[in-house]
Structure formats: C-alpha cells, structure tokens
Amino acid sequence: MQPYTVVGDAISASLTGTKGDATHGRALVVERSSTCILCHSGPFPEQAFQGDLAPNLSGSGGRWSEGQLRLRLVDAAHLNAATIMPSYYRVDGLTRVGASWRGKPILSAEQIEDVVAYLMTLKN
C-alpha cells in the first residue's frame, strides 16, 4: 500500500507519482469486477446494464478536482461515513473479508490513478 496524505477533502498527489492512463481507466470503470457500474450509470452507451444507486458519472471531472476524485476513490467513507460507496484503496477497518480478497485493496494504486485520469476527462 502506498502512503498518502489527505488535505481537506482531497489527496492532491498521485499515489504512484505518475499520471494515470485514461483509456485504461475507462475500461476499468465499465469492467464488472471493478463494481462501479453496479451502482453508477455513465456515458457508456455500449453497456446495457448500469446501476441507479448513485449519481451518473458524466461530468464528474467538471464537478470535482483531481485530488477530490482521488480521495473519493481511495476512501469515500472519509467524506461521508454513511456512504454505500466502497473504499477502493483501503485494507484496514473492514470486517470478515473473504479469503480471496483479504489484505488487498479493491483497486491497485495504478488502477486508482487510471480511473482518476479517466474521470477527469468527463468534463460535462
């Protein structure tokens, strides 16, 4: 796990020290195992099955800064303890995690950066 610093409602520095790959980020967001589109919809016309438990992801990059999106992905519960959005880069404070997932974050630091880079392209 890479260390990170939260300032206010954001993590301004990249977890990997480099910029993510937006194309890879889009592929991750629509991939079922990443879980995003179980809850969210977005500008994914090719995806027949999208969720309606959470806001449409269109325009996220216009509404939020890169650092705010990074913290939202890393640990949404830090922003809102009651949220249903999972913390994608966290391994502590969880209960009864299944053996195949124990000790691993949902997304790696590289994957977080890829998704952040993609969300930043969603300006409207």
């Binding site: 879980t35 209960t95 009864r96």
Partner: peptide, 17 residues
C-alpha cells in the same frame, strides 16, 4: 453489520435501496 471488501450490510441494499 457492514462486511466484506465492499463493506456493505444487507440493510444497505434490502432496506435502504
């Protein structure tokens, strides 16, 4: 009780949504 890597409780889905 919230549980698992996704940190969700049954109630999050079946009571609230």
């Amino acid at each position: 009780q919230r549980q698992g890597q996704l940190n969700l409780a049954c109630a999050n889905c079946h009571d609230d949504n």
